[in-house]
Simulated assay, not measured.
Amino acid sequence: MHWAALLAAVTGIPFVVDAGAILRFSCSQLVVERLDPLVNPGINPSPHLHQVVGGNAFNVSMNPDTHDIPSTATCTTCTPADDFSNYWTATLFFRARNGTFKQLATKGNPLGYTAANGGQTVYYLGPNSGKVTAFKPGFRMTVGDPTFRTAAQIKKYPMLTYTCLQTGSTRGGETTNFPTKPCKVGIMVSIRFPTCWDGKNLDSPSHQDHVAYPSGGKCPSTHPVTVPQVFYETIWDTTPFNDQALWPVDGSQPFVWSFGDPTGYGVHGDYVFGWKGDALQKAMDAGSKCNSDLLQNNINCPVGTTQTIQKGNQCSKKVDVNENLEGWLAELPGGMKVQ
């Protein structure tokens, strides 16, 4: 099977069937804590809980003017050993009938990365033709909006979806809200960032205005520079709660994001670039020769040094926020309300 066709089959995203570079790898869990150096820089703790993967330079501020990520980090949870970027999302909770909450764990992707200590699968995708400009030091962005609660609102971000995994290879049937039935293997959350950049700003006040999605296959004139598509797949282990006798009496779904969203429409992701040197640019320049094995931990791309998943599992950082996250909680961390 052609690499691009296999990518479509594995990820369920036909809009990249003609992709050029396909860089796919595992990033094990680094830390789960209430820090958000993008949206809430310098605030400890941040309002809601996040799960973070990547380099261990992750901290409360990460000021791009003073914080050189590749030289500060000493390890990364990702397979490319030169990738000290940080990738993070909110965390998922199960809400019991009595109103208490239990944090869910992430798990390694069944398609090649079962050895990972949770975390997520990360992709960098390039188009089948044309120049792809890798991100620059200091680049960061977010996608999604944690305040969204309706199907109409999430239309702004159609590339943020959920897949109810009945098997490890289930693809298709994506929804923009939480699945409404038990998922035998878990819930996979897919977060796909924009691929067009204004070519000037490494960030913006909204953390989104400096990037845009293409229209009609082309980048808008306001954002003319094509950048790799950063794409996360996070698999949440919902299997301990597949018994619907544990679900709400009215049959509604029981999962809630750490920021209090019971609908799923508020899903969002954060990204801070931290590749060492020109490793990412070399991968994108390789085009279709960069064709990561989608079913094994084999990158097949010129990204410098690589490491095993087991080595990535050993990377860690000190937890900066001291709070209890174990067992059943009377409320979401930070006192976030479900609404």
Rank of each mutant, 00 (worst) to 15 (best):
M1F: 12
V10R: 06
G12H: 13
G12N: 02
I13A: 07
F15V: 09
D18H: 07
A21G: 07
S26Q: 11
C27S: 09
N40L: 08
I43F: 15
H48R: 00
H48G: 01
F58W: 13
N59A: 06
M62V: 02
D68I: 03
I69F: 06
P70S: 02
Y87S: 05
W88M: 08
F93I: 12
A96T: 05
G99I: 01
A115V: 10
N117L: 12
G119C: 01
T121K: 06
Y124M: 15
G126S: 10
K131S: 08
K131I: 05
K136Q: 12
G144S: 02
T147R: 14
R149M: 09
T150Q: 04
A151L: 14
A152H: 00
Q153C: 09
K156H: 07
Q166Y: 13
G168D: 00
T170A: 02
E174L: 09
E174Q: 15
N177Q: 13
C196V: 08
N201L: 01
L202S: 03
P214H: 10
P224F: 14
L246I: 14
W247H: 08
D250V: 14
P254A: 13
W257H: 03
F259D: 07
G260L: 12
D261H: 12
Y265W: 10
K289D: 00
C290N: 03
S292W: 03
D293C: 01
N300C: 06
N300I: 07
T308V: 10
K317W: 01
V321C: 02
L325H: 15
L329D: 14
G334M: 13
G334I: 11
G335T: 04
Q339C: 04
